[in-house]
Simulated scan of single mutants.
Amino acid sequence: MANEITCVRGDITTEAVDAIVNAANSSLLGGGGVDGAIHRAAGPGLLDACRELRRTTLRDGLPTGEAVATDAFNLPCRWVIHAVGPNRHAGQTDPSLLRSCFTKSLDVASTIGARSIAFPAISAGVYGWDADEVAKIAWDAVTSHASDIDVVRFVLFSDELLRAFEDARPE
């Protein structure tokens, strides 16, 4: 478990941590919400890196619940860890898939040498998951996962999400 776990309201693209997590879609080619914001802020190099992953190791895209890292290009962090959350609107309602986004991201962060990581509220936006449920799953995944990450920060873009994550904080 990380030494420091916090939640803040903010813009994940401005976080000065080793790695930020992108709530990506399986194509890895950008989208809306957090995904679009990260791609815009990182610049065209991020899309090129994602296209290269699709051309080589992830020809069919990144599966739901999995994570992969790229360089961060114009972002203040060193890496972007792309994690594909489950889409409740598409019938992906298994909480273990959402939990996996957080634990696999931590695993990838450890593998690449990151010591600090920032997460968004994966699947709480257009993928239709309830903010309270995402917050509980995220906190449980991060606090029960053995990793060598020192700092975990949940960076939430709205007061509603921040409140959900603060309320879900374990005692």
Score class of each variant (00 low, 15 high):
Glu52Asn: 15
Glu52Met: 04
Leu53Ala: 08
Arg55Leu: 10
Thr56His: 05
Leu58Val: 05
Leu58Phe: 03
Arg59Pro: 06
Asp60Ile: 02
Leu62Asp: 09
Pro63Phe: 07
Pro63Ser: 08
Thr64Pro: 01
Thr64Lys: 03
Glu66Ala: 09
Glu66Ser: 12
Ala67Lys: 02
Val68Cys: 08
Val68Ile: 14
Ala69Gly: 02
Ala69Cys: 10
Ala69Thr: 00
Asp71Phe: 11
Asp71Val: 00
Ala72Pro: 06
Phe73Asp: 00
Phe73Arg: 06
Asn74Glu: 11
Pro76Tyr: 08
Cys77His: 01
Arg78Met: 00
Trp79Asn: 00
Val80Pro: 09
Val84Gly: 12
Val84Arg: 12
Val84Glu: 12
Gly85Tyr: 11
Gly85Phe: 06
Asn87His: 11
Asn87Ile: 06
His89Thr: 03
Ala90Met: 13
Gly91Trp: 10
Gln92Phe: 02
Thr93Ile: 03
Thr93Glu: 14
Thr93Met: 01
Asp94Tyr: 04
Asp94Ala: 01
Pro95Met: 05
Pro95Val: 02
Pro95Trp: 00
Leu97Trp: 05
Leu97Cys: 07
Leu98Trp: 06
Arg99Glu: 10
Arg99Thr: 13
Arg99Leu: 09
Ser100Asn: 13
Cys101Ile: 12
Phe102Asp: 07
Lys104Asp: 14
Leu106His: 02
Leu106Glu: 06
Asp107Leu: 14
Asp107Thr: 13
Ala109Gly: 10
Ala109Gln: 05
Ser110Phe: 02
Gly113Leu: 06
Arg115Gln: 15
Ser116Leu: 15
Ala118Cys: 09
Phe119Glu: 07
Phe119Trp: 10
Pro120His: 15
Ala121Ile: 07
Ser123Gln: 03
Ser123Pro: 07
Ser123Gly: 07
Ala124Trp: 00
Gly125Arg: 13
Val126His: 09
Val126Trp: 00
Tyr127Gly: 13
Trp129Pro: 11
Trp129Cys: 08
Asp130Phe: 13
Asp130Asn: 12
Asp130Tyr: 05
Asp132Cys: 09
Glu133Pro: 00
Val134Asp: 03
Ala135Gly: 02
Ala135Asp: 09
Ala135Glu: 10
Trp139Arg: 11
Trp139Glu: 05
Asp140Glu: 15
Ala141Gln: 02
Ala141Trp: 02
Ala141Arg: 07
Val142His: 09
Val142Ile: 15
Thr143Tyr: 05
Ser144Cys: 10
Ala146Leu: 07
Ala146Lys: 14
Ala146Thr: 12
Ser147Gly: 04
Asp148Ala: 13
Ile149Asn: 03
Asp150Thr: 11
Asp150Trp: 04
Val151Met: 06
Val152Glu: 08
Arg153Asp: 03
Phe154Trp: 14
Phe154His: 15
Val155Ser: 11
Val155Asp: 00
Leu156Glu: 09
Phe157Asp: 13
Ser158Val: 10
Ser158Pro: 15
Ser158Trp: 10
Asp159His: 11
Asp159Leu: 08
Glu160Met: 13
Glu160Trp: 08
Leu161Cys: 08
Arg163Lys: 14
Arg163Ile: 07
Ala164Phe: 01
Ala164Glu: 00
